[in-house]
Simulated scan of single mutants.
Amino acid sequence: MGFSVVSLIVSTLRMSIPLLIAGMGAVYASRSGMMAMGVESMMLFGAFGGVFTSYFTGNVLLGFLTGMVCGAAVGLLFGLLTVRFRLNQVIAGVGLNLFMGAITTVLMEVVWKSSGNSPQVASLTQAVRVPLLADIPVVGTIFSSLSINFYIALVLLVITQYVVFHTPFGLRLRMVGENPTAANTLGIPVRGYKYTAMLICGGCAGLAGAYLSLDQLNMFVQEMTAGRGFIVLVMMALGKYTPVGTVLAALLFGFADALQINLQQAFDVPSQLVQMMPYIVTILVLTFGIKHVKGPAGTGKLPEE
């Protein structure tokens, strides 16, 4: 495919999907006062779990469900380490990221006798054709090229926006993130809300990981998340910890990723140079974009005992 505006838009939306899905989960975590440093590990284990189930059952839907469960399990583990055992959240997140990178490599060797990638499995490759929308010139071409996960991401955006800012659960969640001691004094189960937020975060990250392995590809590749979990944290800060802001930031990073793919396809540009683009954008955002952005005041804090 040569370089064109339509192909660039389609690639941008496709590259944004895992960031959108994982970002919605990370919003819950951040609003509860959790740093969610382990999003990378949740995505990676979700990607592996999805391929593992798809390989042995041939059912891609079960693969996505398994990916969500695997991500939620890692999210809960992060919650236990940081809430129950009061481990520093940065240390716990980095440790889980390293551990999941190693354990998935070991499991690949055990299951498939390969440390690089799994065999090809049943995957979700069918794009969704939306009635009426598909008949609109250009717009129909763009949206008819996207999988159902794009629309799942949009639904998650609406749900997250409503739950976090327009429900009693969301109000208590934000209070837990701002002042856990005051929330505890009012009788709000602070630890319960943090565990719930991490389960949601892990489930969304696991689904995002399963998208990478069962939608973008049809296999699991070692370290296939390629730092997307860290990009989620940066884009969430750029979006000021709001669902809509996070989506806009995800589209920015998706555009950077899509641009490097389209440049490689259309021009004779060294791949090593253009592959740096998403990470260059990340560095620029860290340097100039979030200097004055502050997260919830209670981030990393637990109620006094």
Results as ranks from 00 to 15, higher is better:
V176G: 12
L251K: 09
A256I: 03
S54Q: 12
Q216N: 14
C201D: 10
F45Q: 00
G25R: 05
E304T: 08
M34L: 11
S11E: 14
G239T: 05
M43C: 05
F288A: 06
A205D: 00
S145A: 15
L20A: 13
A250W: 04
L44V: 09
G209P: 09
S271C: 02
L65Y: 05
V83W: 11
A92N: 12
I9W: 06
S4W: 02
T53D: 03
R84L: 10
H292K: 15
A258D: 03
R86C: 06
S41K: 05
L248I: 15
Q260L: 10
G67A: 07
S11L: 07
R174N: 06
R228D: 04
M198Q: 14
S118N: 03
V6T: 14
M235E: 09
L76E: 08
K240E: 13
S144H: 03
K194A: 07
T299F: 01
L62C: 11
A182E: 05
A256V: 00
H166L: 13
V121N: 03
S54H: 06
A237W: 07
Q222W: 09
V274K: 02
V176K: 08
V74D: 12
G2Y: 08
M108E: 06
G192W: 02
S4P: 14
S16N: 13
V39M: 10
F99T: 14
I136W: 13
Q161M: 14
F143H: 00
A197K: 05
S32V: 02
A29I: 00
V60K: 03
A266K: 06
L133K: 06
T105R: 15
M37H: 05
M219R: 14
F99S: 11
L62H: 00
R172V: 09
Q222V: 13
L77G: 06
A72Q: 11
T82M: 11
V130L: 15
G177Q: 04
I283R: 10
R84Y: 12
K291L: 08
L302A: 00
A208H: 03
